[in-house]
Structure formats: C-alpha cells, structure tokens
Design a protein around this nucleic acid. Sequence first.
DNA 1: ACGCTATTCCGAAACGTTTCGGGAAGTCAA
DNA 2: TTGACTTCCCGAAACGTTTCGGAATAGCGT
Lengths: 359, 359
Amino acid sequence: MSLSKIATSLGLSVTTVSRALGGYSDVAEETRRRVEAEARRIGYRANPIARRLRGGRSDAVGIVLPTGPGQFGEPFFLRLIGAIGPRLAEAGLDLIVSSARSGSEELALYRQFVENRRVDAMIVARTRLEDDRVAYLTHARLPFVTHGRTRAGGHASVDIDGTRAFHEATQRLIAFGHRRIGFIGAPLDYGFGFFREAGWRSALAEAGLPCAPARFAEPSEENGHRLAHELLAGPDRPTALLCATDRLAIGTLHALGDAGLRPGHDVSVIGYDNSPVSNYAATPLTSYDPDIEGAAGRMLDMLLAQLAGQDGAAMNELRGATLVPRRSDGPAPDRNGQIKSRAISREERSDDERPHDTA
Amino acid sequence: MSLSKIATSLGLSVTTVSRALGGYSDVAEETRRRVEAEARRIGYRANPIARRLRGGRSDAVGIVLPTGPGQFGEPFFLRLIGAIGPRLAEAGLDLIVSSARSGSEELALYRQFVENRRVDAMIVARTRLEDDRVAYLTHARLPFVTHGRTRAGGHASVDIDGTRAFHEATQRLIAFGHRRIGFIGAPLDYGFGFFREAGWRSALAEAGLPCAPARFAEPSEENGHRLAHELLAGPDRPTALLCATDRLAIGTLHALGDAGLRPGHDVSVIGYDNSPVSNYAATPLTSYDPDIEGAAGRMLDMLLAQLAGQDGAAMNELRGATLVPRRSDGPAPDRNGQIKSRAISREERSDDERPHDTA
DNA sequence: ACGCTATTCCGAAACGTTTCGGGAAGTCAA
DNA sequence: TTGACTTCCCGAAACGTTTCGGAATAGCGT
C-alpha cells in the first residue's frame, strides 16, 4: 500500500502516480512535481517484489560457488563478486549466491535456481570442457555467461587465454635456458586446466623439446606439494616447473624447500593468478595476472545485453593475462648446478617487485 | 498462471488447489491426491515472487562484502558464505551478496537493502566497536546478526574470543621464555582488532612484563611486512611477534627473512585464522583456527530464530579458537642468540603439522 | 454549433499466491 | 422436521505494481 497512499493523499489515481514517477509524458508537469514531492515526503520506494511479479522477472542473477575439500579460500570468486556487485546493483539486479560441492549437488542447485524462477540469469565459473551446467542452462533457455570456454561453445563466455599465457611462460623458461620444463596442472576436464596445459605442450613442441613430465590434481597447496615431490623425485629432474595456479605453485615452492633446492636458481617456478600470497611466498612468485575485474566487467556486459534481449551465442571474448615477474624463476643451472645463461637481463626479472618495495 | 492452471484442468478452485498443496486438513484425501498428481505432471513450482508479495516478506538475507585495497582475497568471507549457503537454501532463503568499500558507501548499501525491502535480515561482518551499520539496522528494526561484538551490544552476535586466544598465545610465548613480545595488530576500532590486542596486553600485565611495542594497520601482507620492519628496527628488538591475522603474519615472516632472522628460532611468530596459506608460508605458521563454519552455523540459528519472531537482543555466543602449532614459534633465544629454554617439549610444537605430512 | 486534436487523467485487469469468511451437502440426534 | 455439526469446497480480497484502452476537458479552426 504505497502508491495508493500517495494517490489518496493527493486525490489522484494510482495509475497517474505510477506514471508520474515512471517519467511518462502523459502527466502534467505540475502534477508530476506534486507527486514527486509527496513521494519524497513519505519516503516512498517502489516495492521491488510487486514490480517483479507484475513484470514476470526476478531481477536477480545467480552464481554458485564451489565448496568442498581444497576449494576454500579461492580468492578468485571473491574478486569476481567484488567486481560484479556494484555494477549489478547499478542495473537494479540482485546477486544471489549459493554454494555446493561440484557434481550432482551442484547441478541440482542450478535446477533449483531455474525451476523456482529465482534468477533471470546465471554466472557460471569453473567451466568444464563438457559442462552439464552449461548444457542444462542452454536447454532451459536461461541467459548465462561463463568464465571459461566449453568445447561446444555457442554461449556467452569470457575467458583468459591460458594457452597463450602458458605458451609464453614456457618460452620464457626456454629463453632462460631451461630444457626440462615440468608441468603441474589442474584436471584437464576443467577448461582452464586444458588450455593451460595446451600452451605448455605447444611451446615445448615448437622448440623441439621433448615433452617433460606432467601431473594433474585439484589446485590446492597440498596437491602442488605432493605433485612437485613426484616430479622432483623422478629421473631427469626438471629445472623448471610450470604451475597451473598459484596455489599449486605455493605447494611446489615448499616441495623445493624440502628437497633443498633454491627456487629461481636450482629450479624455476611460474604460477598463475597473481594472488595476494604470490608476492609473499617463500620466494616471491613469478605469476600471471588475469585481470579478473576486467573480465568480470565484460561478463556483466554480456549478461545485461542478454537480459535486454540479445542472443548470447555469439558473445565471446578471449582476454590476455600479463606476466608479473618476481624471483621464483631465472636462468637454468648448468650440469654442475651453476647458473648457465644470462641471456635475459636482470632488469627483466623486475627486482622492484620485491615485497618491501611494493608496501 | 499456474495454480489456476491446475485448478481449471481439474475443475477445482484455485483456493482448493492451494490448500491441497499447502497440506491443509480441509481438503479430501482423494482431491489432494489428484492435485498432487497434476502438479507433478505439469511440473508445478510455486512462484516465489507471488508468495513473497502476498506474505510481505522477501525471503532473502543480505551480506555486504568489504571491497577495497588490501581487502581482496579474504578467505574468511568465502568460508562464511560457503557455510551459510546450504542452510539458507534449506530454509528457503536467498543469500543476496553485494560489495562496497568500508565507510559511507557501505552504509549506503545497507540503507538500500533495507529501504528497498530487498532482504528480511542481514549478516554483518567486520564489526566495529562503534558500528554505524549496527546502529542503523537496530534503528530500522531489521533482524540481523553480527560476526563480532560491538561495544554497546544488545543485538544478536557470534564472536570468537580473540582476547582469550591472544592471551593464551602470549602465555605460550612467555612459557617459551620470550620476554619482549611485540604485537602487530589490526585497527582497534574493529572489534577483532581491539579484543585481540586486549588479550596480548593483559597476558603481558599478568606476567609482570613491560608492554612491548605494537603497531596497527589494515590486515594485509604488505602492512604486516612494513610494521614488522618497524618493530624489528627499533631498540630492544622483540624476540616474538604476535600477529592479529595470518596475512599480517605472512608479511611479518617476510620481514624476518629480509633481516636474516629465522622464524621460530630468532624470532617467534604466531598468527590467527589458520588460513590455507599458513601451512605453506615460508615457515609453516603457528596459528589459531577460528572454526568459521561452526560460527556461521550459530549465526544462522540466531537469524532464523529472529525471523521466527524471537528477540535477538539476548542472543550472544562467544566461541573459542584452537591453537594449531606449526614451526614459526619456539623457545626464545638467549642473549647470544642461542636457544634459551626447553621448558616446552618438542612434541607440543607438533611437528606433524609439516606440509608434507598433511598432504 | 460542431468536429478535431492534444492534453491529462483514470478504471480495471493482470501478475500468482494465501487466507478470510463463509456455503453447500451430508450426517446425526432429538 | 429441525437444528447442529462435519466435511469439503469456493469466492473474493489482498499484496503493490504496471499498462491497456479509453474518457473527460479544453483549445482551436471552420
């Protein structure tokens, strides 16, 4: 009872009050002023629920966070939400967040969101190459945008070009003189796991280097630690380890420490995410910054465009990640454990990334 | 048009269909069965928006994440949301998340939530001793629960007893033989900053030790690094540094490294949060685990009780944090830099917390 | 005086649900 | 036969908004 409150106290109809506040042209300026004044006076705010009911929308966007062992503390989602929040608010949309562990529980949650009409659109992260959530949303004809690509495509997506980043990272290590460059990756059914591995593999192939050993697991510090141990224990120990995420890289740095190897000297390590800890790891970690905020902005653009009626199938964007050189990588040691090459100058290793200089 | 669809196709009234599905007793069993069968057949789901409009609720709970420099990547909020999500879903409530930088922007967002009737209740984190958000919500008579205490009290709150944890941590360091125990804290207007400092201060006083130097800043790795540098550079260098959060502790560990000091030997460090990185810091970090999931559960209990009509003023819970000993603290060195005391046995330092054993 | 147009306003329906206050039919006892 | 009581059902209002399709009034030219 609120539009009607203004209406009765002004001797107008609800219709006119609504149209006055709605900015329609068929209401006299004088009347509009009176309505606006009265609305301000009683602190009128349109009831969004009534508006949604009438409009058949829910004015909300949903996102499901992955929960479960090793999934806690992913800063990625926090940054995503932080970047998306204000823009959604500006567009008058709520962000509804829920959480589920990956798998059937997760898909069930998507179903709930859709069938209960709780959202107008969804944001999908941690996209898999074959993603049942994407398949479901497509079938349900609910607008959505993914962070990451699927194999099939045909939906709105924003992705960081992991292939290019890891290709470049591998080339960097090769230029440093490394020849045995191992890979510590995320499961290959995740798009980001797949594409990052592909970049590493293709760069090795281009350089005519043999395919070095690789290991894969959910990206956690523990797994990075364990997998690095495995790779370091094998024959022909790698002189460099490329890690699909910073969390894996942090674990890897620890494994190096356990083995008495110095990161950046005996074994080079490069991560991905440029997470806050990377600058404060045992050895400050060379990493790739994915510009999550930028990506989130584009995802929002696509979502809003779809809510405005556009077809999302052709909306795709592949963005770059930028290298943040720190101290965990460097020239490969020679057979005797000495630094082999100075082909890349010290400036390029950007010593000014040291923690006490960025404070 | 959905209850009515069932109604017409069954030759019943909307009322009867609603009451049949609602489990009322004044509908014949036979009729109820027919209604339920038809509902299943057409995949009927009650429109939550219509229900909310009629009920005058919004069936949603809001939370505002702090954004801004150094605030990214707080795993705390992610764990909170992860723990709260499923229970909220079970209660039929949506979790609406938004983000704002602390300060006026943040309060404005709370106002929006309330005035636009977008939520039935709110969750307040990062509580300050004098908190304008708490004051506003109290004034607006919207149910809420805080994580952390205010000075005034009188609202539902769950807090971890930081005073006790830091009192205990200080005693632990004293038992290790430390006499100059510095403190690297969070701003004292945050409740958690205030109470943790109080625990440190009171333990020093009880032991008759002079008040060691302390520094305060927003909890980030950078600030921890900077503040630790300051404390280490002063006269009478502390042999132990107590840090209000793990992020500050991580920065502190780095400052030690810069100064050529060995954590756990030359200078002991204890943090708080038991964040994923603490186990993989340069030196695995002794920390306190706050059991966020447990606290989140109690917060939910209080929120639901308030939504059921109970008064939240008397709902308070103070929970304990448990020590997770790792390798960043230990016996104090004597004047010559030697380890002074073995008063606390090695077992108590729990060497089995080393990373490669927890993988 | 009449018709035409512009301007300004409004009644009523619709979105889908819940709930209040009955009402019709059947049963049972007096 | 009547009244009371049970059982099962329903009409209508209400939540607060938007919007369709007019309708009333005034101004204007003929």
